[in-house]
């Protein structure tokens, strides 16, 4: 009985690896296939002939480069905004007790269950009134706003982890408040800021719904929207370039997450609800 446990565990692990990994493998394989092969009934994991052209075609034909540039700009600017705005607030939430903290935490939790569908209708009307629909500026603001709660929550966790004694010691040495923050708190917070920034970047890079409703000119589309439009209706779908574009679109997120993989040990989320 005992002898069978390990093999059974490995069998289960293998099943998980196939379930999680095979779709990715298939997407990569499809990104090298010709349209004739993808539009046939033959099924091969290894493409019959490797079509690297899918990648160049994806980049040339469908405005993918422009959308990728739009996505990068929106993600970078919204990330910068989020960090700038969240950092002071996170510090305040972590260091000061009282009503503010309760309200802040409560709002962060509520934001997790926000019904975006109810918000998007008036948001569309409001942004239209101030001329920010079909605008990357508008989308950037929206992304920043909706990433803010979680970024705030992450950051205040990192602030809390810095012992206040360090700050107090700095203050006793005669350092001014700004100096304490700049020279003691900020360096210690750096890893947390990087992690929060990455989370914020990936959230914006992946975001679909707001972009779908708020952006209207193909010139302004972000990458997810362009990929969706790529799928097409009744007409001919360039499946190979579509797969190639999808692979390219997934790379930044996967790189960031692999980078952060090691940090995924604590249970911030569970902590959020427990606390």
């Amino acid at each position: 009985m005992r002898v069978l446990v390990k093999p059974a565990q490995y069998l289960a692990l293998a099943a998980y690896i196939v379930f999680l990994g095979f779709p990715l493998l298939w997407l990569v394989s499809a990104s090298f296939k010709s349209s004739a092969e993808l539009n046939s009934l033959t099924v091969n994991l290894i493409p019959q002939d490797w079509r690297w052209e899918n990648f160049s075609e994806a980049l040339e034909r469908q405005g993918l480069v422009r959308s990728a540039a739009n996505s990068i700009v929106v993600a970078l600017v919204s990330t910068a905004l989020v960090i700038l705005i969240a950092l002071p607030a996170a510090y305040a939430l972590a260091r000061f007790r009282g009503l503010l903290r309760t309200v802040g935490t409560g709002w962060i939790l509520v934001s997790q269950v926000f019904p975006v569908i109810l918000i998007i209708l008036p948001l569309f009307l409001i942004l239209r009134t101030i001329g920010l629909t079909d605008s990357l500026v508008g989308l950037t603001l929206v992304h920043a706003t909706y990433t803010l709660p979680f970024a705030l929550w992450m950051l205040q966790g990192y602030v809390t982890a810095i012992p206040t004694e360090l700050e107090e010691a700095g203050a006793m040495d005669g350092a001014g408040r700004t100096r304490v923050l700049r020279e003691i708190v900020f360096p210690l917070l750096m890893p947390g800021i990087v992690a929060t920034a990455m989370f914020s970047f990936v959230s914006s890079w992946n975001e679909f719904f707001f972009a779908l409703v708020l952006l209207q000119s193909p010139d302004n589309y972000t990458l997810p929207i362009t990929l969706k439009m790529f799928i097409g209706g009744e007409g001919k779908v360039a499946l190979g370039p579509l797969a190639a574009g999808s692979v390219l679109a997934a790379i930044p997120s996967i790189v960031f997450f692999s980078f952060m993989q090691k940090k995924l040990t604590g249970g911030l989320l569970s902590g959020a609800v427990k606390g």
């Binding site: 982890a161 890893p191 992690a195 975001e207 997450f257 911030l268």
Partner: peptide, 13 residues
């Protein structure tokens, strides 16, 4: 996708 957290580094339980 906007709200799901990526990292959990800060909590430390």
């Amino acid at each position: 996708s906007l709200t799901r957290p990526a990292s959990t580094g800060g909590g430390r339980g």
